[in-house]
Amino acid sequence: MTDLVAYGYMQRALLAAVLIGGVCAVIGVYVVLRGLAFIGAGIAHASFGGVAIGAALGVNPVGAAIVFCLLVAWAIGYSSKKSGVKEDTAVGIFFAVTMALGVLIVGLMEGYRVDLMSYLFGSIISVTWQDLWMTVSVAAVIAILVAVFYKDLLFIVFDPEAAIVAGLPVELLYYLLLSMMALVIVTAIKVVGIVLVSALVVIPAAAALQLTERFNRAMLASAAIGVSSCVVGLFAADWLGVSPGAAIVLLEAAVFGVTAAVSPVRRRAL
């Protein structure tokens, strides 16, 4: 193991895994409790369109994906709030449309297929210094936002009507949450890819919520599960010679299985 860490690429991969595993899991607690998991999956798939647009325009694909996913996240939020379309229906539409857009653009370009595969399934081993920089910045922004708006996000997730009555800018905070999801998800695509990324958001939080009935503890537990799964999964993948993204997701799923089996929350509820 110590040998592995000696390699530059492994150091970068490890740092990226820790940061991404952590922020995804922290945001995940709000996402799971507010029932936004499907929006997360929608945003992730929309990033395919964003990456393709970036590639076609010759700009940084991840940057393009961030902008694109923010727009899609707001559009999903807006259309479900204003047009009375249910959230999951809005996601179902945006999900497919943005994927189709990506497929269309990729079809029109030549020679990009291989590169796009790394976005679909992740390639944490090929994390560059530039990727790492972006990951560090996003993690810092998310950490600050959660620290500042911790209680307000909790309030709008728990009881939106009471939050409106209390005079909180509930809609703004909701868009803030969607924006944080978009940022985190696009950043995390480097680790596990578009197809698996919503697992990093949903599973650690779901597992943590099996363990505790306190929001703050759930957030800590979720972060711990997210970070440790990413680190262990990364090493395990390297050792077994399998895909790191898949190893991380399967590991998280195993952790969830165990927490659900032993769940003190469920036991107390019986």
Partner: peptide, 21 residues
Amino acid sequence: SSIDLRFPISVFETVLMGTFA
């Protein structure tokens, strides 16, 4: 109230939320 009864929050924390206004 439209709250989710499985929400991980205590009675005290719920009442404390009233002060957020």
